[in-house]
């Protein structure tokens, strides 16, 4: 009986995420939610029946401004992400796709997720998740490039114009830049839904602090994770 309620077992606590990454993560979560909702409303706005634009609430104008505001906040928050990346190894758990073990472990994890194995090797962050997060950053980069590219096209000689102005001509058409921006937004939201499920599932199945790690920065693991060496630099 007591076994089921209270269990005494040895665990190791790993400090993984710096506060900079954690703050960035939550800014990103809020920004992506706001950007997605406002973005959908900008593409398919509701109709206000008013007699004069000047007496209305200026609905779409506000929605656009919120979208732009959060675009700036989100992009600026990458400063935190980059700072954390520099000072803390735990913020650098990217996919080691140049290593054989990355592919072997990916297969191991994928087999567990498709119920072909009871469990996968313990990881600080499993290779499948690493690949997924790296893809997420690629999608976000596309959003930033298309978004600011469109935004600054009317002011090509400004700093923003010089930074982002080259991207829309590369795509060849601003209409397609809009479409790519919109399609990739759906990609990000669907990935985010998958991410939320996988994180909650990991917490439920393994109970090793997958959810709380994004608040506290630590994971409490029963077994030594395969990629523990990524924290102290002993594993390439």
């Amino acid at each position: 009986m007591a076994d089921e309620i209270m269990k005494e077992e040895p665990r190791k606590t790993y400090y993984v995420f710096s506060p900079f990454l954690r703050i960035f993560h939550w800014i990103m979560a809020i920004s992506i939610t706001v950007l997605f909702i406002t973005g959908i409303l900008i593409t398919t706005p509701w109709v206000t029946y008013s007699s004069e634009p000047t007496t209305s609430w200026m609905a779409l104008d506000w929605i656009r401004n919120i979208h732009f505001l959060f675009a700036y906040i989100f992009t600026a928050s990458f400063i935190l992400r980059i700072y954390g990346f520099i000072i803390n190894r735990g913020d650098r758990l990217f996919p080691h796709f140049w290593k054989g073990y990355f592919y072997r472990n990916t297969i191991d994890v994928a087999m567990h997720y498709s119920f072909l194995k009871f469990e996968h090797k313990p990881f600080l962050r499993n290779p499948l998740a690493r690949g997924a997060y790296a893809t997420m950053y690629v999608l976000i980069a596309i959003e930033i490039l298309t978004g600011f590219g469109i935004y600054y096209m009317t002011d090509t000689s400004s700093l923003g114009g010089m930074l982002f102005g080259w991207f829309v001509p590369l795509i060849g058409s601003e209409y397609w830049a809009h479409l790519i921006h919109h399609y990739v937004a759906w990609g990000i939201i669907l990935s985010a839904l998958g991410h939320i499920y996988m994180v909650i599932r990991a917490e439920f199945m393994e109970g090793e602090g997958e959810v709380s790690s994004m608040f506290a920065g630590t994971k409490m693991l029963r077994h030594k994770p395969f990629d523990a060496g990524h924290l102290d630099g002993t594993l390439d």
Binding site: P45, W46, V47, T48, Y49, S50, P53, T54, S56, W57, M58, A59, L60, D61, M153, T154, T156
Partner: peptide
């Protein structure tokens, strides 16, 4: 730039209707 520097949307006389959310459907 002097002729293609602005979007039609940004110089359109119907722009206030866009900002206010007043659309023909």
């Amino acid at each position: 730039k002097q002729f293609y520097g602005n979007r039609i949307h940004d110089t359109c006389y119907r722009r206030p209707f866009f900002d206010a959310g007043m659309f023909a459907e």
